[in-house]
Amino acid sequence: MKRRNFLKACLIGGTTIALGKTNKGWASGSFEGYPEAMGVLVDTTRCIGCRSCEAACNKEQKLPEPDTSFDDPSVFEHERRPTSKAYTVVNRYQKEQPSGPVYRKVQCNHCNEPACLTSCFVNAYTKTKEGAVIYNSKVCVGCRNCMIACPFNAPGYDYDSATNPIVKKCILCYDTRLKYGKPPACVEICPQEALTFGHRADLIKLAHERIRATPERYVDHVYGEKEVGGTSWLYLAPVGFDKLGFDTTLSNDPIISNVKDFLGMVPMVLSIWPALFSGIHLLAKHEEQGGHGHDTDSNQEDTKP
């Protein structure tokens, strides 16, 4: 009887855990991104801060009207970030420098191994083969873990909506353009061709070629080539990236690699704990039967006769 109960107990415990068991191919090794993935190279030396990309994004994605017009330069007074109402913003840096201001467009960088995707517990994010990181608002629960996880602070949340708040971010115009091989709206409108659209692999070569051809124009780094495992959006800059609001402390490993320490220990706990603690229980019980006895008045109804 006792043994049967014990086995039963273990079985129930085991089932409970099996339900919670979640480890499926976590360690994806080093994913270099889809070979056919597209991307955009942002040459900050070319950008003149006209904010046409913001306007184009606003119209293409049918976002609400902006607080102030898209040719209002006063927005540059503060550093801005993408929100649910503006998937891309242009910030101004180095205003005081004699070489003139440097403008930087900010949006979702479409990582090869997106942190948002790996942190999402309903798998709302997809990295498409075209390189876009898209989002399924139909399953989003609204935990906003993706916003915590995103190293570039790209996703914005629709806090204003009470009934259907969703995460909103740049999707590389996937639905309307990228899917058909067309460049995103911001690239198409850019008058200076500060944004170059193409295959990510080609863009990396192109970026290095620009640095090689005009080394006085650029710092020798392509931001996004390696950062957090590589991103579809790549940047060239005339000055150190840290001076343009880029996070230069990011590791070259994707964000998920930080989490692997924990994920790696999950199967260990799942397999060792039941055996360990059931074993300890048996040991403790044996000792008890060996004469220690237990607090007789403490065990509710089932006191020993």
Binding site: S52, A55, A56, N58, K59, E65, P66, D67, T68, S69, F70, D71, D72, S74, V75, E77, H78, R80, R81, T83
Partner: peptide, 18 residues
Amino acid sequence: AFYSTNRKGAKPAHAEEE
């Protein structure tokens, strides 16, 4: 219309964001 020019000066530029 594209540049939403009618929105000029509607609010201090994205001050809320901060």
